[in-house]
Each structure stands twice: as C-alpha cells, then as structure tokens.
Amino acid sequence: MAAPLDFDSPPVRRLCADLALALRAAAHHGLAEGVCNHFSIELPDGSGRFLLNPRGLLWQEIQADDIVLVDFHGQRLAGRHEVEPTAMFIHAAVHRVTGQACVLHTHMPYATALTLTEARALDTRLSQNAMRFHGRVAADACYNGLALDHREGERIAKAMGDAGVCFLGNHGVLVCGARIDHAYDDLYYLERACMAQVLAQSTGIALAPADDATAARVATQTLGERLQSELFFEALRRTL
C-alpha cells in the first residue's frame, strides 16, 4: 500500500476540485435535488478513505474547500462541514463492496422515472446514448426506505455487483467509475438516454429497439476510448 495521502496534498486537492466541479456540473445540467444526494471519490492510496460532498450545501455552490474526507466507518477525518448519514451508509458500502473508485448517486428526474416502472431500468437497446450502457446496468427492485444503516448500504452495493450503473427501484441511480471525469460523462449521458426513452414512451407509439449485437457493438465503440469524456469534463471546467 502506498503511503497515506495528506488531505492538503496536491493530489488530494486536485481530486477535491474535480469532485466539486462534477457537483456544480450536475446542478447546471438539472441532475441535483435540493441538498440531497452525494458524489464520492476514493483516495488512490489504498487507505480506505474517500472524499464526499458535505451536508447542507447546494451542489451549485460547492467548491473544493467544501469537500470532506471520511473513512469507511463513517468518521469525518477532515473538512469543515458535517456529513449526512445516508451518504455514509450508501457510499461507504459501494466503495468497499464493489471496489469502485468514484460513486455518483442522484435522483435525476428521467432516470428516476424509469425506476418507477415495472422494468425498473433503461432499455439499453433503444437510443445510441442508451447503447453505451449495454451490459453495464443492474437494477435493484427492492426499495426498503431511506438507507439509514450499514445493512441497507451493503444490500444496495451487492445488488449493483460489477455493473457500472445501478437503477434503485423507487429511488434513483448509482453511476460508478474509475475516474471522476469518466463517471460524470456516464451520468450525463445516462440521463439523456433515460430522457429520450421517457419521451418516446409518452407518445404511446410502440418502441423499436435495436438487437443485442448492435447494442453491444455500440457499447464497445463508445467505451473504446475515453478522450471525449475527458474533453467534456475540461470544457465544463472552463465554463463552470
């Protein structure tokens, strides 16, 4: 294991800045809900600590100095703000159980709308944006109320498994990745894909999904290189 990184070290401060940027971008794109929901990124030192947005701040106002550092037990280690309990129970479990470095949890409207349907999730054979997620989506149909204990967080994490995206029935979504910029790109395009499906379904006309082979090929093409994801995030950095 690498030496533990200090909260004020340049690598950690860069992660804080990137996490704050992702939160402001999500607010800008209409993916936020009040002062609820959380984004987190694990420190790359194997210490079992991760960065998280604090309790009580709108995503649009969050800056790097507002980010807090916590451990997998829910203890706040650094930062000037408090942490919301449900954030700890969900994010700590997902980081620990799935091994995902970046965990983004939202109640963004169109994705959440699909969690209210019998299918519970996006049809990844429909739009081109949806096909990028083919083979990467899990659905947790069991809604147990607010995640107020470690057992519920671990149940959600196990339902996600090795998927990059998990639709939480009657709740919202989790989008995970190895990097903040890649995960945010997925979050943005997931909502766009869900919006297209909801709008198409609202017409009452039968939908026309592609076949599985085509959807799988598009997923491979989209994820074959991530430069577009990185360029998008840098464009957000320049404009937000």
Rank of each mutant, 00 (worst) to 15 (best):
E84M: 14
A64H: 10
L187V: 07
L227C: 08
I180R: 08
A206N: 12
F167R: 07
E154V: 11
T98C: 12
D149R: 03
A215W: 00
Y188K: 06
F133V: 05
A27M: 07
N170T: 01
A196V: 10
H150V: 15
T106L: 02
E191Y: 00
T222F: 09
L23E: 14
C176E: 03
T222L: 06
N37W: 03
G153V: 09
I41R: 10
V173I: 13
L51R: 00
R238T: 15
A22S: 13
E191L: 02
G204W: 04
L174S: 05
G34D: 03
T222W: 02
V173N: 07
F50Q: 11
P209R: 08
V68R: 03
I62R: 03
S9A: 10
E152S: 01
G56I: 06
L240P: 00
R96D: 15
H150R: 13
E225V: 12
A27R: 01
A64L: 06
D6N: 06
D6E: 13
Q100A: 15
Q60F: 13
N53P: 05
R14V: 13
H38R: 08
A206D: 13
R96H: 14
R13Q: 14
A20H: 06
A64S: 08
A20W: 05
A2P: 14
D162M: 04
R237M: 04
N37H: 08
A92D: 13
V165K: 02
R120L: 15
Q128A: 07
N129P: 00
V68K: 01
A206V: 15
T222I: 15
I41Q: 12
A206S: 14
E42R: 14
H182N: 10
R80C: 10
L19I: 02
D45Q: 00
F72L: 15
L5F: 01
L15N: 07
E61H: 11
L126Q: 05
A87F: 10
V137H: 00
L199I: 12
G145R: 04
V94E: 01
R192A: 09
L168Q: 00
S9I: 00
I67Q: 07
I62Y: 04
L21S: 06
R155E: 06
V198C: 11
G224T: 03
G30N: 02
D181I: 08
E152L: 05
L116Q: 09
L21E: 09
A213C: 14
E234D: 14
F39S: 07
I180F: 02
L116S: 07
